[in-house]
Amino acid sequence: MAQSKKQRFYMRTAILAVLVVAIVFTVYSNLNKEKNAVLQVGDKAPDFVLVDMDGTERRLSDYKGQGVFLNFWGTWCKPCAKEMPAMDNQYAEFTDKGVQTLAINIGESDLKVNSFLNRYGLTFPIAIDRNKSVMESYNIDPLPTTFLVNPEGKIEKIIKGEMTEEDIANFMDQIKPS
């Protein structure tokens, strides 16, 4: 009798636990899906390869062991234009400390991107994502969005919207290889 009561208790607990876990998981992942599909902090940053404006091939996995400050932008996006000179300053500061900067333009023309980087005198590598595949795999929305990729190749932080120069410095420091 006592045995079967105990059995029933465990049985009921197990069934309830399975059901509750399934539901909590479903609700949780549905809520998260809307906010930021697929990629989350701690995930491996999806690899990509793009050719920058100087013709150099930039592959994310080549930066293993270094932090990567990955910025997605467009020339029409005003906050992007505002934070880029600050990024350039911090790029100069951190590039020797093992933090690389890479700015990915969303499918604009060479002419437009070149005129932009000449106007602001930007020195860090900029590449154009012509078929928007990198943008899709990082699920970019809105612009600017910045991913901090740590030396292990994992996403350390996702920043949506504009950053101040101080923010940028702190973020770059955060992914500095030790």
Binding site: I15, L16, L19, V20, A22, I23, N30, L31, E34
Partner: peptide, 22 residues
């Protein structure tokens, strides 16, 4: 329809179905 409470209600219906049937 994507709110946590609506999905929670549907989940509770699922629990009710399983337990009441068993």
């Amino acid at each position: 329809y994507s709110s946590w409470w609506f999905q929670g209600l549907v989940g509770m219906l699922g629990i009710s179905l399983v337990i009441a049937s068993l």
